Simulated scan of single mutants.
Amino acid sequence: MSLWMILPVSLPVFTITGIWITSGHVHACALKCEHLCVFRLYNESCAEPLPLQRSPVLCCTLDNVPLISKCGTLPPESCFFSLVCSTGSFMVMLVGLLRYAHVIEKHHNCVLNTAGLSTGWICAAGLIMVGNFQVDFAKVLHYVGAGVAFPCSMLFVFLQSALTYRLAKTQEEFWMGHLRVCITLLALVALVLSGVFFCQESFSLQHTSAIFEWIYCMFIMVFYGTFAFEFRGMSGDTLMVLSRGGPDTFSTCQQKAEAAGGTGLPQTDNLTIL
């Protein structure tokens, strides 16, 4: 079993831990500083002052719904939020690249594989923008990043689910395809509901939107963790696929091996071993 499988597992572990502990501290800090409001504090008049709140002065309106972005708007919570997003985006790019190379090494390159790599990297770029351009201070750039990250992450899991089925040969691989499709459908439902509720002028519905937004991110991170299934058989040779630009060299060696007597190695390699 390869140690490479630790990488896709570490992405959801780090990110989810970052959200519920580090970013959980973000959320707790935001609430403590009264940068965000719990549901019971929502009011339309904002007549009651918030005694713990430091500047800028805010009140419990729709602008303070605890969406992921709002949890990382003001310092000190914005520092933790940027750290989690930047590190997570780098790991997303790395996992996507290794998945791309692994498919080429074990099977062959295809449009689905290339599209999966592209959408994964575009999603990572959007995530960097979300984490480093706070919504209250760079709203346009923040929303551009969110508009890139959310659809591309959804498209990425769709493409990877389809790719899993296309390459599946064993029962175990088909079961992994079933699991990924289930996660993808649940993530899609969470994303749609989050978007629908976000458009409503209601404290309760927008609060529900925030909940579904957090759930959506959890599903996406769990999906990345499933790549440990493929990465458990990965070796250092996978990186060589990227350096030589494709599987052509591997295919040529395989053809030579078959011509040499089906031993699995070219004839010169057999002599070297002897």
Rank of each mutant, 00 (worst) to 15 (best):
C46Q: 11
Q53V: 02
V92Y: 07
M5F: 14
C123L: 10
Q255R: 14
G236R: 13
L50Y: 09
R40S: 12
R232S: 11
R232N: 08
Y165L: 10
E44G: 00
V241Q: 08
F150N: 03
V95W: 06
I21T: 10
K70L: 14
G262I: 01
F39V: 08
V111H: 05
I16Y: 04
I68C: 01
K139N: 13
L97H: 11
R244W: 06
K169E: 15
C199V: 07
V189N: 03
Q160E: 13
M240G: 01
C29L: 11
M154I: 09
H142K: 07
R244E: 13
V189I: 12
F39Y: 13
R54C: 03
A28N: 11
S243V: 10
I6D: 00
R99N: 02
C123G: 14
R244N: 06
Q254L: 13
G225D: 09
L112N: 07
E105Q: 15
T238W: 05
L186E: 07
C46A: 08
V92R: 03
G195E: 06
C123K: 07
V65S: 00
F212C: 10
I215D: 09
C59T: 06
A259C: 01
A162W: 12
V189G: 01
G18C: 07
G96P: 04
T119V: 13
G233S: 14
I21E: 09
F150Y: 10
L141Y: 11
L83Y: 14
L242P: 09
S23N: 14
T252E: 12
K70G: 01
V84S: 06
T73D: 15
